[in-house]
Amino acid sequence: MREIVVVSGKGGTGKTSLTASFAYLEKENAVIADCDVDAANMHLLLEADFAKQEDFFSGEEAFIDEQNCINCGICESTCRFDAISFDGDKYVVDPISCEGCWYCSRVCPRETIKMNTKKAGDFYISKTKVGSIMAHAKLGFGAENSGKLVAHVKNSAKKLALENEKNFIIVDGSPGIGCPVVSSLSGAHLVVLVTEATTSGLHDLKRVHQVVKTFGLRAVCIINKYDLNEEVTSSIETFLEEEKIKLVGKIAYDEMFTKALSEGKCIVQSDSSLSYEIKNSWELIKKEVI
């Protein structure tokens, strides 16, 4: 079982469309994991059926029982996150600012601050339109994306792949360079970096690759919209050579990319040069990972 994680640093580079296409090509041989739990989209293209749902709990939040509270204000002055304030009548906790550190609860002289478990989001196991199993999630509104839900999605996908003897786990990673992306990357056999031929694309590629390097992971790269700016494309290629990252695909700027999306289709579902290029990339990726 091999795990392939697709990341991009920058948003809007075509990461999810490409990942969905790989999933479409591999059919039931792969377990799919959508680790972009903050703005999950894979379920749309793969028509996930949301067959199984579970509540996901992570972290805690303080709750002040006003009956025993003597309004001493120690909790307010203790909190480093400005999560506790006096509303003119009583002390209240702002659940969005509360980090769940327990400090207020520990110092309250009346022991009147309780810590409640927080529901961080929903976790799903679905069947996709191509028959594969998919693990995905939806982060709760205003919840903390600490990477724990991402880790849960990934670990579940791994378990499902082992139980069902699947060859691949294809992971749509999170954007950025912070906790969620670190969780997405852990345990990857190969990282696919998706970038685009824009100055921002190159800038963000370099930063996310630094994270990938920190974990000693092997990476390949796909340049999307390479003909938008050939100069930037050649800078990207120079960077890839320097870092010994194999280029496994160059995809032209093509509005079909977006049009397929609007029809709810994976790009490889139709016959086109775009589709051919993506199929080719997937074959190269598989060769790299086996």
Binding site: D38, A39, G142, T258
Partner: peptide, 24 residues
């Protein structure tokens, strides 16, 4: 996104522009 970093960047603002594209 919609998690803690965005919240930090929006919670005290007078107005928020949400930029989107016309796709699913």
């Amino acid at each position: 996104g919609t998690s803690c970093p965005v919240i930090e960047a929006s919670k005290k603002s007078d107005f928020v522009f949400l930029v989107t594209e016309p796709t699913p």
